[in-house]
Amino acid sequence: MIRVAVQDAAIDIAAELDIHDAGGHGASASFIGRVRGEGDLVELFLEHHPLLTEAGLADVAHVAADRWSLSALTVVHRVGAMAPGDTIVFVLASSAHRAEALAACEYLIDRLKTDVMLWKRERFVDGRSAWVEPREGDRKRAARWD
């Protein structure tokens, strides 16, 4: 079962685990990305495309599910305004064995940073705000999977 969601609401990890685990899987690996509160950051805003963001996430999810023979996969990305500590993204990949689950989880988080239509804007305590620039390190990590 592949579950992909793009949502304004806070990500409920316990609820996502309950849905995902209904199948009973041998091995599950997860990644949680949170808003870092460094440098006087007060808000992180995630802009998205009304259709193509979810479609892009689904594409990456299906590639991963096929490549590592996953028995279940959950990818939830939050959009809109978030505060430091909030969960931005949750990835949970399950397979019969740990190697596939771990690799798929790493692939998903690397690829969704470079392949999916999402844009971060940071706002700081002094009122300044700036769009986040893509990082060369992220591009290189994503390219390892080509």
Partner: peptide, 23 residues
């Protein structure tokens, strides 16, 4: 609805945006 390059032919709609920074 599909990622495109500079040489891609136009269709009915197009989205223009910066390199993505999600995750």
């Amino acid at each position: 609805g599909r990622m495109a390059g500079p040489g891609t032919a136009l269709g009915r709609d197009i989205a223009l945006f910066p390199p993505v920074t999600g995750g």
